[in-house]
Design a binder for these strands. Structure first.
Lengths: 211, 211, 211, 211
DNA sequence: TATGAATGAGAATTCATTCAT
DNA sequence: AATGAATGAATTCTCATTCAT
């Protein structure tokens, strides 16, 4: 994969967060309340429609309180994107960890992804919007995934578990399938059961269109 | 495909609302200048960062002139999305029209898509952003494509040209591959030649990962 | 005089003024109205108490109009300081220009200064406040004056018109007298007629305290 | 001197308002820490830029602690101005007390003033800013000085130690020289040694410019 | 006495849109 | 058709001050 610059590892302190860390349990709770409210409100209304006021109202705190924990609207947003990345990586590696069969891992990874997306639709939408709100976070998010994916595919090809082929492009293509299907259900409200969608897509991924 | 709500047809009069049609050649030229400037500026800076002022400055006209041709900022945006849809459909049907071999049509359609995206990156970005700025236009755009794609796949399966399988999900999955690869080059600036990308992806689409 | 850095010449474009120049007579008038209102309001209430709202209210325009002509509150302020410098230099050189007798020039310069200050008390106050609001403008203002003053004193000493002595320190001391007497009347509201004040101060400047 | 309004005496209870007096040694220390931090921070950043937070951070205490010792931001400021007045009067009377020769007292007073200012530049800046932040305190400060100065000059003239002349105006003029020279070094960073500056200014004060 | 979380009023600034010329 | 001045609502962010612990 064409790594342009930054490493694919987890960002440690991206942005030097100015929002101070809470020092008491109460503060911790407030911070979480705001973060949750931000996920809900931004995820629903979009970054620009969601005002700080609407977030704090949802969180049940005063407007000023927001700035005790986050230095700006961009910062919460960015934090949500990073959080989504962390959770998703966790969920997927839980689902596929230690699977011997690469093709089965492919199926389970997709299922885990779609399940997670369905459970946190607002968070998913936020990541999509990150492309326009916080391109750096967005790119970091995708690079991290793509790099992991690429490695998996490359190793599988090496081991003869799958047909050989450019792992970079394949990684992007397979991520594209996952995204599209996530959008299919979240954005377009399709109600086909996840397991069914997973099986259809997996069949395509594994055996292609050819008769 | 699960149609939820609005029809998949082209918006009929979307702009008849207020954006008066120019009556002179000069007016026509001005309108086009503004539309082009909007594509460039919004595509680069994003809908919210792009002000009417920055668009008219780019177009070389006064701010007020904008409202002679468009009734609002949303309207130009919407018009650009519709335009992109029209052009893309044209380009793709040009590339695949009358092809007997469905699998080859798949390849050429993907190539045409990636080529077009590379030639109008700002316009492509605008369509992506439409998800957040003008969800209706966005959904209409995708539904139209998905529906066409679905039909093609269904007929091919029917005709025994490809393996049978749920055409709806497949359509979305294949569109997802195309989008991801478009983003791969436009957003992430990957420089792998399009033809190469197309071949790799096509190989995956046609024969899958299985050894 | 210890020139630390910047030249003593008039700043040409200090701050790259973002506030666009008006293009019509109406715009010109509005800009002037705002500038005048700013002088009045900031001069009276001080920089921090004077809100943009209070300035535009005084000027009889909407708040947004302010930003058509000035890019920020600091910018108007800065412009007022520069304007004061220009006017004052003009007034003083008018009053003393071509005077052969240095000591008489001293008297007339002081009179012109105090007269001007009395006629534009708000503007005077703004310059004083510049020390805290826009230190660069403040220093530029004083350096310019001090340098002119120093030259005048140095030449006079050279020519034998006054007793020799360090012209730098003297320039600052004499400027200090003028400022203090300006404050005496403007800030402390003393009502001694200017001419009287001038004579008393001039006597001190010329002959000192010694019996 | 033309007394306009408030008496020239020290403010009586200025802070008895709400700022509770500390009752323990620890409290006393905390109060002093805050006062010192306020001098440093306000003196450097100016009243408006200096937030309570920046002061308490500098002092190493929590924000709320500030309000145990001072009832408002204005109050600390005011207290600093009064403190400066007290110290300066002390320093000057130490330097000139019991001097028989008025002209020599003039020299030593100036030296003491400039020395003090150089040792506490932030405090000096605070007094200057008081003109805009706390005009009452500012006027009180200057009136007190001016009145003392005036008396000294009047008595000296009476006693035939100096040439006769309006003591009010002279007092302001001489104070103006001192202030300007203080600013010369503090604000403009001139590095001429104080003793030299004092001698030059004293020569001017005593014998004037005339050849 | 000390802490630090919470408040909410207030201010600057931006920008889509309107309108007189 | 074109201009550009004017509007004012909306939004983010800051900060002095209060208060429960």
């Amino acid at each position: 994969m064409s790594e342009t610059g930054t490493p694919a590892k987890d960002q440690p302190d991206r942005d030097a967060q100015t929002g101070r860390e809470p020092k008491t349990a109460r503060g911790e709770a407030t911070r979480r309340a705001i973060l949750g409210a931000a996920e809900k409100v931004i995820g629903r209304q979009g970054f620009n429609e969601a005002s700080i006021g609407s977030i704090t109202r949802e969180a049940g705190v005063a407007q000023g309180t927001f700035y005790i924990y986050f230095s700006s609207k961009d910062e919460v947003f960015s934090e949500l994107v990073v959080e989504m990345g962390r959770m998703l990586r966790h969920v997927i590696s839980e689902a596929t960890g230690g699977m011997a069969d690469r093709l089965e891992a492919e199926r389970e990874g997709l299922r885990a992804f779609l399940t997670f997306v369905a459970s946190r639709p607002e968070l998913y939408r936020i990541v999509q919007e990150a492309q326009f709100v916080d391109p750096d976070a967005y790119r970091a998010y995708f690079r991290t995934f793509a790099e992991g994916y690429r490695q998996g595919l490359a190793e599988a090809a090496e081991a003869g578990a799958i047909r050989p082929g450019n792992a970079d492009v394949r990684a992007w293509a397979l991520m594209g399938i996952a995204r599209a299907l996530g959008e299919y259900s979240v954005v377009f409200g399709d109600t086909t059961p996840i397991d069914e969608v997973v099986d259809i897509a997996h069949d395509l991924i594994v055996d292609g269109l050819r008769k």
